[in-house]
């Protein structure tokens, strides 16, 4: 498939994804909607931290910064996985367009990439707004001195880490697409379940060292762990952190995830075509 055709497919998929996501409401309502959920998520962990610290008598701003960055960048995982998990179900059963997309000369894989990129766009907007509002609420409203140097962010490392991380989360999304093409009832549970596992073992809001030994080993095998470490270092410049080693681990776990994700998706599509699942109806 020529590169221009691939890019055109991705562009159209991003456009249709944007329309599907946004045209149910006017822009203001949509913006509020995309802000409220991540902000509420941040408020939950922020208040757990504050109340827990209050009763124990010690408020550690460094730990707050740890969870603040971790929870905010987890938005990418949530958005990409929800988008990619719901995609097959919506296009196949609800709108009944998956068979048409499958039949076109463009590739379904590139269409899915485009829809996932739409999730990345939404997540990026949510991230920026949540970071800003989070600082307003917790630093200026609740008086926690978050040790973030906004002018000293390592933008290069942030960009590389984000790029590799997004590719990795999209690969996990392809696994979800593969599972959904072969099944018809798990699209709602999958992102919640996989997200829950990554949230716990990725050390998103607490130090992974608190996990039992087997949990720490599992955490070390997950790309999300290295992704969040790099994101945190880009903002916090914590000492004793080896950037290169963590980047290598992130790249290595991402390569494995991409290989597994694409292979799984291909096998799933083969089985789906063989078993007549591509245009399966679910009584919509």
């Amino acid at each position: 498939m020529a590169i221009t055709a691939v890019l055109r497919t991705i562009k159209q998929a991003v456009w249709i994804g944007w329309k599907v996501e946004t045209n149910w409401a006017d822009p203001l309502v949509f913006a509020i909607y995309y802000l409220i959920r991540p902000i509420a998520g941040l408020l939950i962990v922020g208040f757990i931290f504050l109340i827990g610290s209050f009763v124990s008598g010690i408020v550690d701003p460094g730990l707050f910064a740890f969870l603040f960055i971790g929870n905010n960048f987890f938005i990418y995982v949530t958005q990409i996985m929800i988008m990619m998990s719901m995609l097959i179900h919506e296009d196949r059963a609800h709108y009944e367009v998956l068979k048409h997309i499958y039949l076109t000369p463009g590739s379904l894989q590139w269409y899915i990439v485009g829809r996932a990129l739409n999730g990345v766009m939404n997540a990026s907007v949510s991230l920026v707004l949540t970071l800003g509002l989070g600082v307003l609420i917790f630093q200026f409203g609740m008086g926690i001195p978050i040790p973030l140097n906004w002018l000293g962010i390592d933008l290069g490392l942030l960009a590389v880490g984000l790029l590799v991380g997004i590719v990795c989360f999209m690969a996990i999304g392809f696994i979800l697409c593969g599972i959904n093409i072969m099944t018809s009832k798990v699209q709602f549970m999958l992102p919640e379940y996989i997200g829950g596992i990554l949230y716990l073992f990725g050390g998103v809001v607490f130090l992974p060292e608190l996990l039992p030994w087997w949990g720490q080993h599992f955490s070390n095998a997950l790309p999300i762990t290295y992704f969040l470490r790099i994101m945190r270092f880009s903002f916090l410049h914590n000492t004793g952190f080896d950037v290169h080693v963590n980047l290598v681990y992130l790249a290595a776990t991402t390569v494995i995830t991409v290989i597994v994700g694409l292979a799984f998706f291909r096998v799933a599509m083969f089985k789906a075509r063989r078993d007549g699942l591509i245009d399966k109806k679910e009584e919509y």
């Binding site: 939950i44 931290f49 827990g52 730990l63 969870l67 716990l200 607490f206 608190l210």
Partner: peptide, 9 residues
């Protein structure tokens, strides 16, 4: 995850 967060503090 939330229980571990309470443990952390």
């Amino acid at each position: 995850a939330y229980i571990f967060l309470y443990k952390m503090v």
